[in-house]
Design a protein around this nucleic acid. Structure first.
Length: 313
DNA sequence: ACCCAGGGCCACT
DNA sequence: AGTGGCCATGGG
């Protein structure tokens, strides 16, 4: 019996699933790989105001060891991992003649589209713009430490929940408001007080503020009606509604829809996707060919293109 | 020092 | 309706 872990459960997926591939797929920015007291490397995953550990052996593409009860896994983490979606069937639908994509999909067969918190995805991808992935991780971590609730101490470090809209607004940094602010503004600045500058938000600070204003609502620090209604919109209407928020353009809106609302046919086009399309597809190619799971295929493409790029640079 | 990053806004045509 | 400069910050 492992006293530290409390419990450990082994679960078996019916198809491939790879924690390391998911961690590298650019959709989650808070996973941390840690060596625990049992000598094993685990992914420490904070989400939904909880923390769970997961690991798997090298050749166990479908088996997971998790640090929670079977009941919690089934109700919280299996949905998070999109446990029941048939990704093999999705890969089987890739056009026969698209050899590059078929190869990319086989290499990335363990990727899942996580069902993450929509609000967290909204803020995360707003601040992702013009940042590389390590910088996004750093920025999200700073924001959680500055504004989120302490969940506890894990592996010798404090882990914080992702802040609520009200908590983001409560930062009251003089730079976060929409209006300009002179350097001698003596107003409160929680960011500075905590010694973390401005959470590295940079010019995205008013965008984060605008999203928090949109999402904040209710007297209980919950979400606004406008925010809650997003979930019921069609894919197209969801993108349009998201883009009404200053700082959310088509790419960020697509990421929010794909990773926060599990709209598997939305196809975020970033610099990597532009390279992939330029290098592997004809100029007049239409991504309609990727329907109805364009978003899943996009993740295979994203990982494959980044792997190619890493070799050249 | 240099270039780049899971872009978007705004002022120009 | 398209296009280019600009934005602030950290990694490689």
């Amino acid at each position: 019996m492992n006293m530290e872990c409390g419990r450990e459960t082994t679960v078996q997926c019916r198809e491939e699933i790879s924690l390391s591939q998911i961690a590298q797929s650019g959709q989650c920015f808070r996973w941390t790989e840690v060596k625990r007291e049992d000598g094993q490397y685990w992914w420490r995953i904070p989400a939904f105001r909880r923390v769970v550990y997961m690991r798997q052996e090298d050749k166990e593409m479908g088996r997971l060891h998790v640090s929670c009860s079977r009941d919690e896994f089934e109700h919280v983490w299996a949905p998070y991992l999109d446990w029941d979606t048939d990704y093999r069937a999705i890969r089987a639908g890739i056009p026969e003649n698209d050899v590059w994509l078929r190869e990319a999909a086989e290499k990335g067969a363990g990727i899942r589209i996580l069902r993450q918190d929509p609000w967290e995805m909204m803020i995360t991808f707003i601040l992702s713009q013009r940042k590389n992935i390590p910088a996004i991780r750093l920025c999200v971590d700073k924001l959680c430490r500055a504004a989120g609730d302490l969940l506890g101490e894990f592996d010798g470090e404090e882990v914080y929940a992702f802040p609520t809209p009200a908590q983001v607004l409560s930062l009251r940094c003089h730079k976060i408001g929409a209006g300009s602010c002179s350097a001698d503004d003596a107003g409160p600045c929680t960011f500075a007080q905590k010694g973390i500058g401005s959470c590295s938000l940079g010019y995205r600070m008013p965008y984060v503020h605008a999203a928090a204003v949109f999402a904040a609502g209710g007297d209980d620090g919950g979400f606004s009606d406008a925010f809650r209604e997003l979930a019921s919109l069609s894919d197209e209407d969801l993108l349009t509604a998201l883009m009404q928020i200053k700082g959310i353009g088509i790419k960020v809106a697509s990421c929010i829809a794909l990773f926060g609302y599990h709209r598997l046919n939305t196809f975020p086009v970033d610099v990597w996707m532009k390279r992939a399309l330029a290098e592997h597809y004809p100029k007049d190619f239409s991504i309609d060919a990727f329907s109805p799971y364009a978003g899943v295929l996009q993740q295979y493409m994203f990982c494959a293109q980044r792997a190619e790029g890493a070799g050249r640079r």
